[in-house]
Amino acid sequence: MSRHASGRFERQENRLGYLFAAPWLVGFFGFTLIPVVLSVYYSFCRYDVLRPPMYIGLENYRYLLTESGNFWKSVWNTFYFTALRVPLVIVGSLLLASLVSKPMKGIGIARTIYYMPSIVSGVALSVIWLWMYNPSHGLINQGLALLGVPGPPWLESPEWSKEAIVLMGIWSIGGGRMIIFIAGLNAIPRHLYESAELDGAGWWHRLVHITIPQLGGVLFLLTIVEIVTCFQVFTEAYLMTRGGPENSTLFYNLELYFKAFQDYDMGVASAMAWMLFVATLAVTVVLFQTVGRRIHYEGRN
């Protein structure tokens, strides 16, 4: 093949490469890059969609940080929700995984059942749990009544509403996270446990000194995924409580939605979106710099 011909082939493959990638390139410019640029611009504007955006500098940010009570309320709610849910989901799904990681009779069925709640999401999930949490006729309070415990009004009380959404979240996502933990647990070399058992190490010792350090990478990544998921909580609160009672479930994204699609205050909503993005990025970077560095990834490829 002459050099000339190979150059032609290269150019041809170059063209073909762009052609094959065109659907994504077009989508990237149209549905990601341009919206991102617009979103930055809107965050410095007063904009209600009907009239053209009007530049107002940092006013939206100033308003959110110093004037809007709901903004800080939503930040606090989201923080509380995250702090409560992340450890519970991690521990819960690790527990599920450790129960079904080793071979036993009917293990496939057990795993299927553990995973099943994960396919219920969004509206159906919320409708089912609204009914489960019904203060007088729902299953949970009727069950508590059988035990002689008066159940709280759950979603109808500011003290229990966030806890209720967290509990539902564990049911709905535990099985999905479990599968990743099963893969992680099975990758831990057997001999580590065997030698620990010979040394007479108990269950707790094995968990703290073998399982958790060995799961390091998986545990760390799932924690980050879980934090990001919690920062973005929306659907459950929108469907079950609309942010109530007394704004106790007004999460960040719910407030953002209200600003954008009820008040049509697109400027403030865009500013909120950017602050969320920066907060997410900051938390991720800090975690990678502090905890992430100390994790050793040996034992898995």
């Binding site: 149209g30 990601t32 919206p35 617009l38 979103s39 920062f231 973005q232 699609f261 993005f277 997410t280």
Partner: peptide
């Protein structure tokens, strides 16, 4: 782009689709 939260683009997308 996989890391970008959907909230960042939803408002401009609404405007574009409108």
């Amino acid at each position: 782009t996989m890391m970008l939260p959907p909230q960042v683009t939803i408002v401009p997308l609404f405007v574009i689709f409108r």
